[in-house]
Computed example of a mutant assay.
Amino acid sequence: MAPSPVAAVPLDLLPHLDPVDGVEVVPYDPQDRGTVPGGGREVDVLALPMIAGPWLRRMGEVPGLRAVVLASAGFEHALPHVPDGVRVANAVGVHDTATAELALTLMLAAQRHLPHHVLSQARGTWDRSTPPREPWRSLADSTVLVVGYGGIGKALTRRLLAAECEVLAVASTDRPGDDLVERVHGVDRLPELLPRADVVALSLPLTAGTQGLLDARALALLPDGALVVNVARGGVVDTGALLAECVAGRLRAALDVTDPEPLPDGHPLWSAPGVLVVPHVGGASPASYPRMGRYLHRQLTTYRDTGDLEHVVHG
């Protein structure tokens, strides 16, 4: 009989992970940087913690490692550190709700001028005006272009429809719609869709094909006053081109992710007019832990039964 697979799991995820018959779970403390997950034993599956930065560079120290389950939907940051022959799966579906929730929050905050009103509150001023040269806006009756119609894009679309928006969905290729949208447009149709958008929301992975997708030419197609919302990766947008449009007062932006990231002190995006920046907190929600626990349970069950993972993005 083959030995049971061994899975190294962060301590803070254990309360949310139901036992998996036939899989031995070995906990490790992600706060203790002096230990190696598995305690020196050979590990079949390594589950990375929510804050995985230092552990990405240590995957090669885990003996016998065969597979890694990321706790993030994005995976481009992990791939340079993956040892040869190791399979990697990203956290599909885990952060959809939290990220869509933040994207909607950013849209509402920008459309309803909440940063302006927060500053007025800090001054103790009852000010019903809008920022200079800014009209009153609403999210309702807006046309929102959702670029990246995967799990996060669909979760966002559900919320946008409830907010009484028209949603145009974009994915890598054109395909029939679903219960939310009549049609999913291919990314090659962006030039004809961007001029229709009051808001463009980015929720797609960063790949060689999506790097700089919203460049100067694409941004120039957006109508005056349009809002760019990025909950994907900073590199999907040409930062210099976006900054130029915002400084000119033609476009606005609400960004959970930036390029570079973290955004350095003194970077012009911090003070650009019409720009709202939050520090990559899209997936930071208490809901992420139980969802990650359920996802990891499925992954470990699959590995036990097949020797492989679902949603493999590398290896």
Rank of each mutant, 00 (worst) to 15 (best):
A2T: 14
S4L: 05
P5Y: 03
L11N: 09
D12A: 09
L17F: 13
V20P: 02
V20E: 03
V25Q: 04
Y28T: 13
D29Y: 09
P30T: 07
Q31V: 12
D32N: 14
D32L: 10
G38N: 09
G38I: 06
G39C: 06
G39N: 14
R41I: 12
L48D: 08
M50A: 15
I51T: 11
R58V: 04
M59V: 05
E61I: 06
V62W: 05
G64W: 03
L65M: 01
R66L: 01
A67P: 08
V68G: 07
F75R: 07
H77G: 14
L79P: 10
H81P: 02
D84A: 12
G85V: 15
G93K: 01
D96G: 04
L102R: 08
A103V: 02
M107D: 12
M107N: 09
M107W: 12
A110K: 06
R112I: 03
H113Q: 11
P115M: 03
H116Y: 11
S120F: 00
T125S: 11
S129Y: 07
S129L: 02
E134V: 13
R137K: 03
L139D: 07
A140N: 08
A140R: 14
I152Y: 01
A163E: 10
E164K: 13
C165W: 04
E166M: 04
E166Q: 13
V167A: 15
A171T: 08
S172E: 14
G177M: 13
D178Y: 09
D178F: 08
D179W: 14
L180H: 14
V181S: 14
R183E: 15
V184N: 10
H185A: 04
V187H: 15
D188P: 14
E192M: 05
P195H: 09
P195D: 06
P195C: 05
A197F: 04
V200H: 03
L202H: 03
L206R: 07
D215Q: 00
A216L: 07
A226M: 06
N230D: 12
R233Y: 08
G234H: 05
G234Q: 05
V237Y: 12
D238Q: 00
G240R: 00
G240Y: 00
L242N: 13
L242K: 12
A248L: 08
R250F: 13
L251F: 05
P260R: 14
H267W: 09
L269W: 15
P273T: 13
P273Q: 14
G274D: 06
V278D: 09
G283C: 06
A284D: 15
A284P: 09
P286G: 02
S288Y: 15
S288F: 15
P290L: 02
R291N: 11
M292W: 06
G293I: 05
Y303A: 06
G307V: 01
H314Q: 11
